[in-house]
Nucleic acid binder design. Structure first.
Lengths: 348, 348
DNA sequence: ATGAAAGCGCTAACAA
DNA sequence: TTGTTAGCGCTTTCAT
């Protein structure tokens, strides 16, 4: 591997001149610039980023922390963060914590020891102890997909309230009057925001979302199955259902299919996230797409610009969701209220 | 950030002693070891990996190159490689190339400049020009999920022939006699291996896999739809179908569902990969799981042990697939041959 | 505009 | 067993 020294020798100048010629910010005569460029070409010199990193204390490396990699949401974060980072000349180190505090801590410490330029966190809670670790460092941090109580850490989220509103409005416009919702964990702020947007829009229009028509799930496929079984079993009456993520919607669809309840004829269903499966399914899922690509780009930008060195400025970027209408929503039909509690009737 | 110097000053020893005490390989007196450890605790010292990397020319960093992140296969590579790397104390830099040679080259060069300890490639072809770049370096490389002609680069693959055999045997044991196959791109060796395993097993048993029952797809959902449409349209007669990956199987299932052809009653279907969707679907897909976790662990091990510095030794690890029986395969039934060319009859 | 020299934080000869 | 010293490859004062 050729080094700066080799280039310098070949070009007949000092290493500092080569360095300046390459980085461009400091004036260098045309003549030497050409000589240096030639030498660089000749020996195919590539600056060593480790050495530069040590010297200037910037590694052009970003860290991304995700809790797991089974859920397509986190895959999207990885994908789009890598994309945004690469566009800005950064590389990405990823770490999956499996929600294990030890792994999480190990990973963060590694990133710090590596003199990384910034860390993007997905899904951290206010009480996560890694936030404490990070407070001791000067490494820029940004939280993605969570709305934290504390405001000293920049965050990027979708407008979750708007997503609930959007789901409700779509269903309302189709003529539905009786609504149900299977939510994510309600100890998490963004899920409460989603529900609020949904409920307030439904209620404001004079339609109904009874309390017994709300089931708190955990974003997993099984949770969708469980939620719909619960709703049907307790005799909740509704023609329109919103699942706060697509995995649960998949579970719902699967359950309804097994029990012969037709979608959208009996129940209209809207999801959230727009995962791949949502269009590969039959019927294809009507859902709401999160602006993941933009969220990740924003997160990377925030880190690179490091404006939050100035802690007074609160940074909270909010991006808009988008409705994607497919096959699981329709006007409420005669069949709709034919759905009876599962324990009472055996379907079909 | 405290440095070695700070620890040394506090412990009243030289920096080299601290270094030795921390790395443990060189003898240090009990007394000093304790003093050093104390000092390390006191100021919460963490070695700077950039400096160490520059010095010892090993960064404890691995690079993983994937063509894209939409396909669950590559997600699995990321997931399990990160897992294996973390278990060995390495971090992972990932790069997605979108099959763009420029991006690929940029990423590889970055990795080299970062003095990375090894690169894991998924899906490189023999003619990929990055292999040329890598030849000039001493960085250990391993290819995953591809069988290259050249043997100087270590690779880790599933036993693809066995997967074909396994699909055929399962279907054969159910009583099927007429087979079809929708393959991946056949310019790629592993897909030919899969087909050979399938075909040879079918033929050896005296059953049939006619040429017109083989469709060459491209591993995408749409390709599955196209393939099954083609097979049905040309009047190919079969009761058992193998798709060489699950995305195509999803497309097939979706198409058959739209055309009212029941699975597994009319056609038994086997996939390959065991993606998440395969069990979320209804009917759940019978498929073959690739040993991705083990493949990634092997790949990481090969790099870490660096035994291929010695180029004479050819490294090619092959791991076994596993059959996962679910709902899309059954005995051939009376309905089976009721399937007529689509252009002739409108189904149901 | 250019060069000499120092130093980022660490490890490894070498000497003691 | 320990300290001194040099140096990994780069950038950046400080002179000139």
């Amino acid at each position: 591997m050729p080094s700066l020294k080799d280039v310098a020798r070949l070009a007949g100048v000092s290493t500092s001149t080569v360095s300046r010629a390459m980085n461009g910010n400091i004036p260098v005569s045309e003549e030497t610039r050409r000589r240096v460029e030639q030498a660089v070409q000749d020996i195919n010199y590539k600056p060593n980023l480790v050495a530069r990193g040590l010297r200037i204390k910037s590694t052009k490396l970003l860290g991304l922390v995700v809790p797991e990699m089974q859920n397509e949401t986190f895959i999207s974060f990885i994908r789009f963060t890598e994309e945004a980072a690469e566009a800005k000349g950064y590389n990405l180190i990823i770490g999956s914590t499996n929600s294990d505090p030890d792994r999480e801590e190990r990973f963060i410490e590694n990133l710090i020891r590596r003199n990384i330029d910034g860390i993007i966190f997905s899904r951290v809670s206010d009480k996560s102890h890694v936030l404490k670790i990070l407070e001791k460092t000067t490494i820029p941090v940004v939280i993605i997909d969570r709305r934290l109580e504390r405001e000293d850490i920049p965050s990027v989220v979708m407008d979750n309230y708007a997503s609930g509103k959007m789901a409700a409005e779509h269903l309302l416009s189709l003529g539905h009057r009786h609504f149900a919702c299977i939510t994510g964990p309600l100890d998490i702020a963004i899920n409460r925001d989603r529900l609020a947007g949904f409920k307030e829009t439904v209620v404001a229009s004079g339609a109904f979302l009874e309390d017994k028509c709300i089931f708190e799930g955990n974003f997993k496929f099984e949770s969708g199955e469980k939620g719909i079984a619960y709703l049907l079993d307790t005799g909740a009456r509704f023609t329109a259902l919103w699942a706060q993520n697509d995995y649960m919607a998949m579970g719902i669809l699967n359950y309804l299919s097994r029990h012969g309840i037709p979608v959208p004829e009996a129940i209209s269903l809207v999801g959230l996230d727009n995962i791949q499966q949502s269009w590969m399914m039959r019927p294809a899922l009507t859902t709401i797409a999160q602006p993941f690509r933009d969220m990740c780009r924003e997160a990377v930008d925030i880190i690179i610009k490091r404006p939050h060195e100035d802690k007074k400025e609160k940074i909270r970027v909010t991006l808009e969701p988008e409705l994607i209408v497919r096959e699981t929503t329709a006007k409420p039909s005669d069949k709709s209220f034919a759905v009876e509690p599962i324990s009472k009737v055996g379907y079909f």
